[in-house]
Amino acid sequence: MIVTVFRTRMNPGAEEEYGPMAKRMSELARTMPGYISHKGFVADDGERVTIVEFETEEALHQWRIDPEHGKAKRRGIESFFSEFRFQICSVIRERMWTVKATGRV
Rank of each mutant, 00 (worst) to 15 (best):
55 E>Y: 06
35 Y>G: 02
75 R>Q: 13
92 I>E: 14
62 Q>M: 06
39 K>W: 06
57 E>P: 13
20 P>K: 00
77 I>K: 12
36 I>V: 00
23 K>A: 14
38 H>W: 02
73 K>E: 14
76 G>P: 13
76 G>T: 12
57 E>D: 14
19 G>M: 05
73 K>M: 12
81 F>T: 10
52 V>N: 06
99 V>N: 05
46 G>Q: 03
78 E>H: 09
81 F>P: 05
27 E>M: 02
103 G>L: 10
12 P>S: 10
88 I>W: 00
41 F>G: 00
89 C>R: 09
59 A>I: 09
69 H>N: 14
39 K>H: 05
70 G>F: 01
76 G>V: 07
78 E>M: 10
53 E>M: 07
4 T>V: 15
86 F>D: 11
33 P>Y: 00
3 V>I: 14
10 M>D: 12
90 S>I: 08
41 F>C: 03
81 F>I: 11
6 F>N: 04
75 R>N: 14
78 E>G: 08
104 R>I: 08
90 S>H: 14
14 A>M: 08
7 R>K: 12
69 H>L: 11
11 N>H: 10
66 D>N: 15
20 P>Q: 00
22 A>L: 02
68 E>D: 14
39 K>A: 11
84 F>T: 14
98 T>L: 10
56 T>M: 03
93 R>I: 10
43 A>C: 06
21 M>Q: 04
54 F>D: 07
66 D>R: 08
40 G>D: 02
21 M>V: 04
104 R>S: 12
97 W>Q: 13
53 E>H: 13
58 E>I: 12
80 F>C: 06
20 P>D: 01
10 M>S: 13
50 T>Q: 04
57 E>V: 08
66 D>F: 06
24 R>A: 10
101 A>W: 09
18 Y>N: 07
65 I>F: 02
50 T>G: 02
89 C>P: 09
4 T>Y: 00
16 E>A: 04
103 G>K: 06
72 A>R: 09
42 V>N: 04
79 S>I: 11
3 V>W: 00
43 A>W: 03
18 Y>V: 07
75 R>Y: 12
76 G>K: 11
58 E>H: 14
40 G>C: 01
2 I>L: 00
78 E>Y: 09
44 D>I: 07
39 K>P: 06
101 A>Q: 11
70 G>S: 13
62 Q>D: 12
91 V>T: 13
35 Y>V: 02
84 F>E: 13
14 A>S: 14
67 P>F: 03
28 L>Y: 00
51 I>D: 03
100 K>E: 15
104 R>W: 05
9 R>Q: 13
79 S>V: 12
17 E>L: 05
102 T>F: 05
46 G>R: 01
56 T>G: 03
82 S>T: 12
25 M>W: 02
31 T>G: 04
10 M>N: 11
49 V>P: 03
33 P>L: 00
